[in-house]
Structures are given as C-alpha cells and as structure tokens.
Nucleic acid binder design. Structure first.
Length: 202
DNA sequence: CGGTTTTGACCGGCGC
DNA sequence: GCGCCGGTCAAAACCG
C-alpha cells in the first residue's frame, strides 16, 4: 500500500523528474473540477446538471457513466455548503477550498508532495469501490483528501482535496525548481496541481 | 520505537 | 421519528 505508483526505491522528491514522464504517460487529466468556496464559477453544480460539468470537459465519449460519480460529488458539495452556512456565525469557518480531480490512472493515489495519513475507508453508493479518506500529517494542517475510483470506469480515479495547507510542501523547493526548469506543455496541466497545492488565500 | 494503516463503531445530517 | 448515508474516531495491528 505504500507507493504503488513508484515501486522504485529511488523515488523521492528528486524523482519528480522521473515522476513527470510516467505521470503524463499514464494519467489523463480528462476532467478537473474546481470549486473555491463555491465562488470560482468554474463549477456550478447547483444550477447546472452535473452532466454538464462532465460534458463541458473532455471525456472522450466515456462520460456516460462518469456522471454518476460527479453527481455524488456535487450532491456532497451542496450539502457541505449548507452545513457551512448553517454553522455559527463567527467561527473562523473557512469556506474550505475544494478541488476535485478526475484522472485516468492505474494507481489509486497520486503523490503530490504532501504527507497524508489515512483515517478512514468507506464504501459509498453508486460505487462498488471503497472511498479512502486522508488527512495531512502536519500538525495544525487540517487539509483533507478523498480518493475513490470511478465505479463505472475503474480506470478513472477521483481525487478531492479540501482545505488549505498551513505549511510548505515538503518538496516545495523541488517543485519550484522543476516548474522553473520544465516549461513543457505537459507542465501546463501540472501547474494546475501546483496552484492548488499553494492554495492562494482569498 | 514512532508513526501510520486498518477496521468496525459511532455520530450527525438529510430525506422520507 | 426512523432509517439511510457519508464522514470521522479510535484502538490495535503493522511496518520501517
């Protein structure tokens, strides 16, 4: 269960370089969903049917079944939002930056440079597979991560990040270095990931 | 030895 | 009011 994506003992932060090639080779960012406190506007699950989100992205005709997964997600979103609004008024209630990725990969979890500790596993409806819950290991950092496989297309993995990191990425230096060094088209996609990791304060 | 994973139980919200 | 459903906790096992 360690690092299925990188059996290599050499895999470290430095291996990001190594990580890059296979990463883009094996993974497809076929669908990304952004939602910053329901303010981004890139995702609008409440007004638009979840399907539209999928179709607006590139699903290469395999979007048929994926709708269900997205649906579940959006449903969660709305309930989550309601929960926030219903909470106390002055409680430093962070809107919670939420980002959902839908990637095509053979592995379950992608290493994004942070240290995650698994704290739960649950099987959800609309998905025969189990959903895994991770939390950032750093103290005071309550960022959560949710990983599940698409019940319809086992090839796809849905990863949802929630919250903003308090601290630097353990491999932050490398990221900067890499980002500067590698300006390939591929990094276009990955830069998205990076932007999430550094999560700008609104 | 410390930190992490595992797994079932528990809890709280929502819908009916 | 009850049951479903999703999310979290916590204790024990497990691993490096």
């Amino acid at each position: 269960m360690n690092f299925p994506q990188n059996p290599n003992p050499n895999f470290t932060f430095l291996s990001e370089e190594n990580f890059l090639s296979p990463f883009m080779d094996n993974f497809d960012f076929s669908n990304l969903m952004f939602d910053e406190g329901g303010n981004s506007g890139l995702v609008q699950e409440e007004t638009s049917p979840p399907t539209s989100i999928v179709s607006s992205e590139t699903l290469t005709g395999e979007s048929s079944g994926s709708g269900s997964a997205v649906k579940t997600l959006s449903k969660k979103e709305s309930s989550f939002e309601g929960k926030i609004r219903g909470s106390k008024d002055g409680e430093t209630k962070e809107p919670g930056h939420r980002v959902a990725f839908r990637t095509r990969s053979k592995i379950d979890v992608m290493d994004d440079g942070y240290k995650w500790r698994k704290y739960g596993k649950k099987s959800v409806k609309n998905n025969i597979n189990k959903r895994n819950y991770y939390k950032c290991s750093s103290e005071g950092c309550m960022v959560k991560k949710r990983v599940e496989r698409d019940g319809k297309d086992a090839a796809y993995v849905i990863t949802t990040y929630e919250g903003v990191h308090n601290h630097e990425i353990p491999s932050h230096v490398y990221y900067n270095d890499i980002v500067s060094s590698y300006d390939h088209d591929n990094w276009n996609q990955h830069s998205l990931l990076r932007s999430i990791e550094i999560s700008p304060p609104s």
